[in-house]
Amino acid sequence: MHINEILFWFLTALALFSAMMVVFSKNPVHSVLWLIVVFMAITGHYIIMNAQFLAIVNMIVYAGAIMVLFLFVIMFMNLNAESEPQKSKWMKFAAVLSGGSLMLILIAALKDNGGFISSMRGEGSIGLIKNLGKVLFTDYVVPFEISSILFLSAMVGAVVLGKKDSSTIVS
């Protein structure tokens, strides 16, 4: 087995196991930490596929920024395993069942195709920053600018939502 394949299986197992732990761990903080592990595994997958830029962006944006936000919120709300609301056993069973059947259907629909991924060096240069940047700032410059406006509005929105309403303080 080539080391690439070993890495693939290892990362896949890691990603799936920790994804399950995200769903099934009782303590929300543990869920967040397992989700970070999932993102790290996915980052590893990106590196195998030689998508360096996405790998590092995934690490900085998802694992480094978004998950810290989640952790912040959970820590401030002081959520722990005891105060965690639980659904009834039957609801959970039904959820797992329906999820499993969805997965079966999707796999059945998508299983027949003959593509493959190779990790030869010369064949994988599109994931490099140089190439991605060139396309991003020429062909996709308008969506890029629009996304910056999106960010600005998200920022304003978050501040407006998070700010304590002065009328509620009085009451």
Partner: peptide
């Protein structure tokens, strides 16, 4: 690594 600085940022954010 040809994304050296970004790697540094990634690790710092970790």
């Amino acid at each position: 690594v040809n994304i050296g600085i970004l790697y540094v940022f990634g690790v710092v954010s970790m």
